[in-house]
Simulated assay, not measured.
Amino acid sequence: MSMNVRVGTRGSALAVTQTTTVAEALASAGTLGYELVRIRTEGDVLKGSLAQIGGTGVFVAALREALLDDRCDVAVHSLKDLPTGAAEGLEIAAYPQRVDVRDALCARDGLDLAGLPAGAKVGTGSPRRAAQLRAARPDLEVIDIRGNVDTRLGRVRGMHGPEVVEGKKGDLDAVVLAAAGLKRLGRTGTITELLDPSVMLPAPGQGALAVECRSADAAAETVLSAALREYDDESTRLAVTAERSLLARLEAGCSAPIGALAARQDGKLVLEAVVCSPDGQRLLRRRMDAPAEGTGAALDLGVRLAEDLLAEGAAELTPLAGH
């Protein structure tokens, strides 16, 4: 008997695109139909920088409320938007296979980061990207921006996005966005350089999605729970578990100037992290590895690297709660 799954999503083009991909994958893994349930979140309504309106968690609360109120059966999040704390009654039942983790420079005239002239204006809404941009190119002017992907691209001189902020068309020389989002939207033609993690370490969880559902539904033996288990990618789960464990131990929040990236290499899980001062003048970068032996080992790896960073003075570079 076919089951119809209600899949919660934000209303942005990127959110709908990635949610549809998840819904179709779950449907193909079981005898499932699906419908998308669009949820308007606080982050879609409030103006101002992410730091001012409460960080990226503002995109998550309404989706979680919809799950708990039984208005949808699963919710799809960009993992880097998801707070590290557990939500009572909910759990992440699947991490789909991660896509490109890198940040992408989208610049006028095909320029790369090294080719931007001194004083060029580069837009980003991320303190992490801003700090690492300033570290790599202290002669650039980093501008805080918000808006969906096309709105941001429309602010780059010579790039014509369909959505433009009034009075702010072509006022920037470049923007930095997640490569994964650009690829999901078919906007790879706007990328002028994929920034190597040695230059810009991504946000914990970047390039990964999280499929969240009610804990009771994850534990039940249903077509949906089986599809979620099949959809979960072990390598992605281990990597993002380590990254988010580090973030949680630092008590940093999603919008802190902190990058982290883990990956399986030769039977080990290797985790690298950077903590930046907001002005990019000071960076603390460390790496550590552990046997890739399950989520417990991944959690421990994140905590141990965070402890190392704290011992080296991470809390002196940027405000960390509890430190």
Rank of each mutant, 00 (worst) to 15 (best):
A104G: 00
P202K: 00
G313S: 10
S126W: 06
P197D: 11
L271I: 08
T9Y: 10
A180E: 11
V122Y: 15
V175F: 03
M200Y: 10
L172S: 14
S255D: 12
A292S: 12
A75D: 04
G205M: 06
R10C: 14
S277E: 04
L283K: 13
T188L: 01
D308S: 14
E312D: 15
L46R: 09
M288C: 04
A178Q: 04
A262I: 12
L305K: 10
T222P: 00
I143G: 12
A25E: 15
H160V: 00
S12C: 14
A216N: 08
A263K: 12
A107N: 07
R244A: 02
E24V: 06
G207L: 02
A219V: 03
G253F: 04
L153C: 00
G167Y: 14
M288P: 00
Y231R: 06
A94D: 01
A23L: 06
D103Y: 06
A135L: 09
L50K: 05
T84H: 07
D139N: 05
P127N: 14
E163V: 10
N148A: 14
R237Y: 08
L284R: 14
D217C: 03
G89P: 14
G161K: 02
V303N: 11
L310K: 13
D112I: 01
D112V: 03
G110E: 01
G115P: 01
V74L: 08
R128C: 12
A239H: 05
V156T: 05
L67E: 07
E312I: 11
P257V: 13
L310T: 13
G119C: 14
L269K: 11
P138V: 07
V223E: 05
L32W: 00
G43S: 03
K121I: 11
A256F: 05
R214G: 11
Q132E: 15
V175N: 05
S225P: 01
